[in-house]
Design a protein around this nucleic acid. Structure first.
Lengths: 251, 251
DNA sequence: TGGCATAGTGTAAAATTGACACAAAGCTCT
DNA sequence: AGAGCTTTGTGTCAATTTTACACTATGCCA
């Protein structure tokens, strides 16, 4: 059951909701945080859905998205970007969906427009727990997802596309990695977001030429092979770079 | 006064509107179709605004945007793309704005979320006329716009940015030009969208290498200088190109 | 100590970019 | 008819970037 922080002097807007595509990276592939709606009354509708909720009349859209994210994961100050608004009148067409909506939302009958966001989090920062009040949430690899409740699958597709475009322009991928990471992990991350293989040497050359990574004098520990050097993202260097009008990472 | 096509069996949704950034190109610079709200009751609020309207409960967002566009210009089947949703609770904060809203919208008091679109039209296809029922609309060069009603200026900025990014990925600029155009006009168009000068020869080389233009055996007439060859956009060639996964026009 | 897995590295050919200047065509004006 | 104006259209060279490609180094494990 969602925990809704009812705000004093505010009302839920029954017509507008926010849904979040929360991306993670398990160092192998891109994942998304989905909630399991459990057994659905009538029939075999998709059980998984994006986390989301109606907005309050006194918060703006970004705030609402941050709230949804914080209510589910407890995380704050997370990279968040709007994907767009989705609003087919028949978005919620299944009787069973309506039933379920009653459990988390007011007025399941109303036509709802949803504003989708995507966010990038370090998977390690949120470990879903069955016992959590944030109901049954779980990290699911994106390419294992073939259906979702409502129009959430469509939203996911657009979020992926937006992320793909965005990462060609800004190095936002670091938000998905631990502070310290290896070039191979970064490489793998780019491959899974862009959904195509990238030549190892060419990738390393290009990323290093950008000069936005700080090499640490530290190696991986406990891996059953040659340990890799660890790097971290250098915010200052990146600022310098963008100051020059640079906006093309060209992958 | 807006002409609202009341649809049978449908209701206006008082919480959600659509606003359109309608781009044109006067062969010199990028322009936007704005409506003049006329004398504003109290004080000197910006008079110009983006065309927009509330949505009906039985139409989806794209339909609503197309409707707004058609109601104002009579044009259909126009390139249209969502910019995003805008929804600060205090979006409509001025008393005079509320007054004006009453003249075109139901429930001006409600908190309204707006979904912004941008569209690309051939300026020649819509000539604003003072006598038109579409009130006082006019093409205004984008870089002459410094303020707009509500949060419309912010919306315009984002629409420009979106267009800028999009044109690097897809050759949508042709929607702003007449069927037959010169390379100089196309050149000028890219410069005004990207907001930076492009070398003439390099631009021509690059655009021609894409091989998505058909050269016509036809020249400009009646220009007081060497007449240019005319070209048209070749949809089939472009399809071939995108089939190969090409998505980088690299300007 | 040998085997396994991944890290890390260089080069050469091809393609792309960026900088740059002048002759050609048609109109207008006298 | 000719001079002058305005914009079109064109090529090259150097620098940079991209692509394709394979072997050695390191540390763990058995």
């Amino acid at each position: 059951m969602h925990h809704i922080t009812k705000k004093i002097g505010s009302e839920l807007n029954p017509n507008v909701s926010v849904d979040c595509v929360i991306f993670g990276f398990d160092l192998e592939q891109l994942t998304v945080l989905l909630i399991d709606r459990g057994e659905i009354p009538s029939g075999s509708r998709p059980r998984m859905a994006l986390p989301g909720n109606l907005i309050y009349d006194n918060e703006n859209l970004d705030q609402a998205a941050n709230r949804v994210l914080a209510e589910l994961t407890g995380l704050e100050n997370i990279y968040l970007e709007q994907v767009g608004a989705f609003g087919d009148p028949d978005r919620i067409h299944k009787e069973s969906d309506r039933e379920w909506l009653k459990t988390i939302r007011a007025e399941p009958e109303a036509r709802v427009i949803t504003v989708a966001y995507f966010s990038l989090v370090q998977m390690a920062h949120y470990k879903p727990q069955a016992s959590s009040f944030a109901k049954n949430a779980d990290w699911i690899p994106v390419n294992q997802i073939s259906e979702l409740a409502f129009d959430h699958f469509e939203i996911l597709q657009e979020a992926k596309e937006k992320l793909k475009q965005k990462i060609k322009i800004q190095p936002i991928g670091f938000n998905l990695l631990p502070e310290k990471f290896t070039l191979s992990q970064l490489h793998r991350l780019y491959e899974s977001i862009l959904d195509k293989p990238l030549d190892k040497r060419n990738f390393r050359r290009k990323i290093q030429k950008l000069d936005i990574l700080s090499s640490l004098r530290e190696k991986q520990k406990g891996v059953p092979h040659k340990p890799s050097l660890l790097y971290e993202f250098n915010e200052e260097k990146y600022q310098e770079l963008t100051q020059t009008g640079f906006d093309n990472f060209g992958f």
